[in-house]
Structure formats: structure tokens, C-alpha cells
Write a protein that binds this DNA or RNA. Sequence first.
RNA 1: GCGAGAGUGGCGGAAUUGGCAGACGCACCAGACUUAGGAUCUGGCGGGUAAAACCGUGGGGGUUCGAGUCCCCCCUUUCGCACCA
Length: 863
Amino acid sequence: MNLEIKTVSTPRDERYNAQAVEQKWSERWRSNSSLYAAEAHPTKPKYYVLEMLPYPSGALHMGHVRNYAIGDALARYMWMSGYNVLHPMGWDSFGLPAENAAIKNNTPPRQWTLGNIAAMKKQMKRLGFAYDWSREVTTCLPDYYRWNQWFFLKLYEAGLAYRKKSRVNWCPQCATVLANEQVVGGMCWRHEDQPVEQRELEQWFLRITKYADELLRDLDKLQGWPEKVRTMQQNWIGRSEGTQVDFDLGGTVGAAGSTISVFTTRVDTIYGATSIQLAPQHPIISDMIGRDAALRAQVEELIAQQRRARETGDIGNIEKHGVFTGRLAKNPFNGEAIPVWVANYILMDYGTGAIMSVPAHDERDYEFAKKYGLEIRLVILPSNMDEEETMTAPPLPYTPIDGMLVNSGEFSMLSCADAIKKMTQRAEEKGFGKATVTYRLKDWGISRQRYWGTPIPMVYCDKDGLVALNEKDLPVILPDNVPITLAGGSPLASVPEFLNTTCPKCGGPARRETDTMDTFVDSSWYFYRYADARNDKAPFDGAKIDYWFPIDQYIGGVEHAILHLIYSRFWTKFMRDMGLIKNDEPVQRLFTQGMVIKDGAKMSKNLGNVVSPDEMVARYGADATRMYSLFAAPPDRDLDWQESGIEGIQRFLGRVYRFYLKYSVETRLDAAPAGSVPPSGETGQAPSLQAEPLSNEARALQRKLHQTIKRVTSDFQGRWHFNTCIAAIMELVNDIYGAETAFTDGRIPSSLIGELQRDIALLLAPMAPYISHELWEMAGETSNLLKAPWPKYEAALAAEDEIEIPVQVNGKLRGLIVVSSEAGDGDLERAALADAKVQAAIAGKQVVKKIVVPKKMVNIVVR
RNA sequence: GCGAGAGUGGCGGAAUUGGCAGACGCACCAGACUUAGGAUCUGGCGGGUAAAACCGUGGGGGUUCGAGUCCCCCCUUUCGCACCA
């Protein structure tokens, strides 16, 4: 073993040629199309790792690369850990950009989209992502969207899809309706500067509110989701418990006995209600206005104020305005008649669009009452006051719910909580109100007046009215050659061959629905399709879902925290209730990675700070590009792209490569006695090194290797700080270079070199697949690295013999002692007191206390 | 305004449980090898000092033998929500 190891001369071309190596392995992988294929298996443990599928815009950006680099590293690690891994990819390929491109370039959306998919798929393959392409899902193709239509029919049958005329969000630039979830701060989610307009349209809705409670409740099950996302969904659902109370208008409006219903969470304050406030859009107002042109103008002005505030983005700070309608409404609790106003701070979309105004106990009502001189009547006192102080009124408005009622008839002296119960009960008994739960969540409007989406499988018949198609008539194929404009209504309405059809019921002439579905329908269930992507009889086979679901790890941007992820949860619950699947939730663990930024700002074409993945791959290779995206920051944080950083990774990979080149299998075989190099590490276990004692240098390297395996493994299993994984491997490689002389003079045995080379290839495999495969081969291995067992560390080999312990005097570092890792408290203390620097620091002082933390530190307290 | 996260060298970031602050990488400086170096290898690199001392994790207080880490107050910043009755 001590024979000298021949070193290979170092020719100029020893630089690692990433392009050549990556091309070599690309070709090998291409010729084996089933490399990453997975099949449901009755006994193998499964792992479903999923990255959010991209919109095929034409080119990947760095955010995609980062997302997929994380997912791919995890998938590869799980393969190496023995799991049956499902790692699919697809295309969220319906949507408006294809139509915009069509208008701009005069290219049909289908052609443009499929071209983009081809280009991006090529990029993904070049980056070496290990996807099972046999399961590819392309949502704009009929073999996928026919199941959207199928689900729609099921939803319609179940009463969960319905059509109604309603006020909807309209983006003039998209020339279509938007779901509530697609309106961000009053602006279109695709056009940040475009205020959303309100229009009255007939629309298709999905009754997601049926699941509002379950969607909220089951958030508790999602412990593997970021707290932030759960909170966002909780706020979005916005469940609020309260009481609905009917105020009688005393026949002053419309039919005698008509009422205004208000929703309140604080029915206990109702004796303090001194007015009713209506949203300007409240339907009862049209009855009130009658021929009062002045009032009509004032109400319209309130609506205009709301619109302006929404457009300037400060709807939250709108200056409150209101107008008295001239009507009075009777408070059913005390019979008092109070004025009915219309105010611009009341929202029609929430609750009943009407409130009882209690200025003494609500900030907004207080502000309004002050401005218009309405009565402010105190009905709640803080209950925690001392006896003598109970008569002191609190500063108004007093909003806490921990008080006690006063001036509230028979309910006076009750606590707020008791009063809410008793008063709600009274309202129910007397029939003028009831306990109510309201949600901020609204039904999901899915109609889009666009071409490039899934046709809705409904027809309008003059005789039978609205008729659903039969399943056998699916798919309704989206026609090609449709003239696309962003003006006026659905493009499909201008295609007679599409529009005109026959009624499935009576066979007479009928017209098809010309709206298409929101693309979020496509992405609400696509990950189920991956489990059985080529099924042409059903969206999927339930048994396959039972095996693969729930998704073990879903990875994507936090921007989908509400839209996509709440719709997906809804769809899962609906499919479960249909009996198609058994799981309640689609995703076990969710990971939201940070953004990729450059020069302090998100990469964008406008800022000109976009870094192209293609360029990086061409310059540094796919491995370096991927690995840098893992190294530059922990994956949950934003990543600041610095080109000099990727050069560092490139340098590192070259350093690793040269180690294999210099101590190649051939030179090692020359040097070592026959048979001393163990056969390929089929078990992943360290070869036995017991044969003869190791040199100190060899032992140190072996220890470092096992420590590195330990660190990398624990990061993969736990917190996914790939940056520290890579740093650990860099340290190991630095140590190898630092032991150069030990390598050349034979103190590092061949067997250890082999172990180092095999294990480093394995450790790098999830993060830098190309070079790892090359290194694996260079280390003399012929097995498939993708499924080679992940290396195991041995605690005994990772353990330090001697450790360096800091010694503090009064909490300040004064010395370092080197002791055996087995050293006890007494040994540590003696060694610490014997240290010259420590002695100097405590000289002439009295030792008050000695704190010894085993294996960590010693602190001597002196006075 | 409410909620959540973040603030550490010139830069990206380490420090997993209260125990040597700055791992690893970049940038920079020096050296080696070289016809050459934008390759490679070695060393240095928070401030401060001749060397020490000392000072250093946004600011101020506190708990502790010991605080980047825990507690209180404040500042800055990112993200989400925002008249939700």
C-alpha cells in the first residue's frame, strides 16, 4: 500500500470541459427514454415530487431554473435513497399571451404555444432535469382539456356549476372577466397599472363556497405548508361569525313590511345603532330613489368615489361620504326609528351590503358620525374597571369586546359575549334575525371571453334553453383559424361552424357557449393526470391516485399561494365527493422558493437585468448553472444573482474533476497490490480499511469524508440548505488538496482515494448530475448513478479524536485547549487552568465559579 | 393600520439546541508555476494596534457565567391583507 502513486502529468487540456461532458451524457440519457419512468407498485415506497408546471412563454427564466433545480435535487436524492419516485413535468399552455402573440405576429395560438413548448422542453433537457416525459401533460391539447369539460359536466350535474348574471371584474386590456382571485389591489393581476372595471355579465361560476368551511378547517392538516401560505388562505376565505338582523322600513319603501338586513359581528352594540348605512349599489336604493333625481345623482357620485379610490389604489383610505335617503328603519330590539343613509365606505360584496352604524363602538362609524353630526350613544363599558370608576365613560370609540352592556334595555349588565348569544337567540325567536356566517370567499367565476381556453360544454337551445352536452359528445374541440381580436366578446362567437350545433335533447338547432374556461381550471387537477397521463377512458384510474397521492412535496413560487393552491384544494374535495379519489388534500408538503433577483430587483425585461439560462449554460454548463442557483442562498430566500459567483462554482467543479484525473483508477491500480481496490460500491458502504493502520493524514481525510456525508445527508432530509451542503463538499475537496503531499508520498491508500472518489460523485449527483456521472465513471464505476445507493456515514469514522475547546475568562475568549474528545469535566478544567494565556488572565484574581460544558467550552469567572 | 419574514465583513451568505461570530464562495492583496495567464496552486483578508488591549451581528435596554441566537422598546426593509361591518 505504501507504493508510490504515479501522478499523471497535467496537460493543458485538463481543464474541465463542461460542454463536452454534458453533451456526452445528454446523448446517453436521450437514448434511454425510460430512465426516469416510474410505475405504481404495490409494495415499493413512493415519493411524488412536483414542481409547478410552467406557462410556455417561449423561454425558461432563472426562477424556473431555481425551482426545478430544487425539485430535481430532491427527486434524485429520493431515487438514491431507494424510493419509487414520480417526477413529472407539463405545460400550463392555455391563456392570453398566446392570443396577444397571435395578434402581434400573426401566428396561430396553437402553433405559437406548441413551438414554445418544444423550445422549453429542449432547455429542460439541456439542463439535465430528470423528468418522466412519458407522463407529460399539455393542457391545451384535447386529450387533456376534454377532461376539464367532463369535470364541468359533473360539476353542473352536482349543482356546483351555475350560470348567473352578476357584477364582475373586467380587465379592458385582457378584454375578459377576471376572478376575484385575479384582482390584486383593484388592479388586474396581469396588468399592474390597469384598474379593474365592474360589468354586469352572464357568467359561469363554480360553487367553491360550498367548501369554504372545509377549506378553512383542513388548513390545520397542512402542517407541511408554510405558515404564511396557510394564513393567506385563511384570510382569503375570511370566515366571520355574526348575526343578521332585519330592520323594518315600515312600508316607506316598496311593499309594506319590506326590510333591510344588516350583518354584524357585534349585535351586542345594537342599542347604540343610530343609523343604517347602505352600500351605494344596494338593490333597495333603486326603490328608494324613485323620481328623486338629486338623490340618484348623489348615490352615483358615491359609486364614482369608490371607483376612483380603487383606481388610485387607496380604497382603504377613502374619505367617507354619505347621503341621507330620507327614510327611517325600525330597530327591532328597541323599536326606535333610525335614519337610513347611503355611504361610500360600505361594500356591496361583503355581508349584506348594509350595516347598522354604532358610532360609539366602531372606528369607521365614529368617524362618519362625527362628520355628519349623527348621535353617538355609549352602550358598552369596560367591565374591568374598579367599582368606583364604573361611571367613567371610556374614550370613544370603544371597540374591545370585553365590556359590559349599558343603556341596552333588558340586556344591560350582560357581558358582550353573553349578550351576543342572548340577543341572537331573541332575534331568532322573534323571527327578525339569525346567527350567520359570512365569508370573504366568493364563488369562482370561470367564464372568459377569450379564445385560447377550454370550451365550456354547454349549448343554448331555443326550445330547451340551457342544455349540457352528453359525455359522449366530448371533447368539444377548440377550432383553429379563429380571427382573434381583443375587441368585443368571445372570439368563438364569430365562428359559425363552432357556434351552430344541435341540441342534445331535441336535436333542433342550438348555439354553443362561446366563453372558455379560466386557465386555473386546467391547473387545478393537472397533477392527478400525471399519475395516469395517457388514459383515454377517464381522467385517471383511481387506484393509481391511491398509490401516488398525496403529493409528497410540491415546490413553486409563493405567488400561487391563493389562486392555484386554493382552487386545487377545492378540486380535490369535489373529486373526493364524486368518489373518484380518497384523499382530502392534494399536497402533503409545500415549499415556496424565493425569487431570483439581480442588482436588488426582480429580474424583468423592463429593468434590463434579466439573466438568460441559455447563456449561463453555454458559458458555464448546466451543472454550474444549477448548482449556483442552489449555492447562492438557501432555497426559501430570495437569491441575488452574481455572475462572479457562478464562476466560483465552475472553478470548484474543475477542482473536483482534476482530483479524479490526477488519481485515476489506472494509476491507482498500478500503485496498489492486486485486489486491494474493492469492487464497485454496490452497497454504498465504506470498504473495510482495517487492513493496516491509517496514516494521520488518511485518518483525517476519512473523518472529513464521513462528516461531509453526515452534513449533506441531514440537509437533504431536513431543511434543504443546499448552500451549506455544497460548502461542506467544498471543504472536503479543499482538505484533499491540502493533503497533496500525503497523496504523492503514498500515505493516502488507494482504497481511501477510491472511497473519496465514489462518495464525492454520489454526494454531488443530486445537484450536478452531468459531472457526477462522469466522475462516477472515472472512479471506475459502471452502475447507473441515478439509482446508486446514497452513501452512509459511520459515526465512529466521523468522530474526532481530539477537539479544540475555547476557554473564556469572565465570558471573554482567552485561550484554546486541545483535549481528547473523551475528556471529562475535570480534565477540561485542569487543562483550562493550565493554559498560559488563561493563567495570565486570572492572575491575582479570585476564581468565583467554573463552568464546564462538555465538548463545548470552559468559562472561568473571576473577581 | 393589521399580519408574517428579514437586517451579520467590500458582496452572496455560515453559525441546526444560548457556548470560538464571519464556514463556504466572490472580490481584493501577496507569492509560486509559467513564453504567457482571464488557467492552476499556496497564503492573507471584520475594524483597530508595531503587537496586544479593545471594538464589532440595525439602535437602545434587560436576562445569563456567557446573547447574532431569549425578553422588552424602537428604527429600517420585503411580502401579504387592507373600510370585511
